[in-house]
C-alpha cells in the first residue's frame, strides 16, 4: 500500500491541486464579499455568489492540533505527523509537519509552508518556522 493516497481531483477543488503544482496553497475567496472558505464549496454561504477567486496563502500559521499517523501495515515505516494548521490567513488546514523530531511537536508552534513530493504525490506541507527572536535582524539602510 502506498504511503500517500493521491487526491481524486474534483470540479470544486481542481484549482487547489493546480496551485500545488505551482507551489501555491490557494484559498477559495468569494469574488463578491471577499470571504475565505475552506474546504471549498461552489456558493458563498454569506452572499450566495458563485463567483470566486483563489488567493495564495501567506504560508504561515500555528499548530492547532496534531497526531502521529503510523502506517497501518508497516509499523516500522517513518510515521507522519498530521497537523491542523491555524493559518494566519484565518482558515484551518490539515497538512503534515516535516523536518521535525516527534519530541519537538507541540500545540501553538509556528510553522511555515513548503512543498514536498512523497510517493510521486506533490503536497503542501509545513515545517517549523524560525521563532521571531531567532530571526536575523534585517539590515537597515
Amino acid at each position: 500500500m502506498p504511503k500517500v493516497i493521491p487526491p481524486t481531483v474534483e470540479t470544486d477543488d481542481e484549482y487547489f491541486w493546480d496551485g500545488v503544482q505551482n507551489d501555491q496553497l490557494l484559498i477559495q475567496t468569494c469574488a463578491d464579499c471577499g470571504r475565505f472558505r475552506h474546504p471549498p464549496v461552489p456558493m458563498c454561504g454569506d452572499c450566495h455568489s458563485t463567483a470566486w477567486t483563489a488567493t495564495p496563502s501567506q504560508g504561515t500559521g500555528t499548530v492547532h492540533s496534531w497526531i502521529v499517523s503510523r502506517h497501518p501495515t508497516e509499523p516500522d515505516a517513518d510515521p507522519r505527523v498530521v497537523i491542523l494548521v491555524e493559518l494566519d490567513d484565518g482558515i484551518r488546514f490539515v497538512s503534515n509537519l516535516v523536518d521535525v523530531e516527534l519530541v519537538d511537536v507541540h500545540n501553538e508552534m509556528r510553522v511555515e509552508l513548503c512543498f514536498r513530493v512523497i510517493d510521486d504525490v506533490k503536497l503542501p506541507q509545513f515545517r517549523p518556522a524560525p521563532s521571531p527572536s531567532r530571526q536575523t535582524p534585517s539590515v537597515q539602510g
Binding site: 493516497i5 497501518p72 503536497l123
Partner: peptide
C-alpha cells in the same frame, strides 16, 4: 485506500485514513 469524494481530498492524502 483511495479518496472517496466528496471532500476526502483534504484529509486522505495527508494520512487521515
Amino acid at each position: 485506500q483511495r479518496v472517496t469524494p466528496p471532500g476526502w481530498n483534504w484529509y486522505l492524502p495527508f494520512g487521515l485514513d
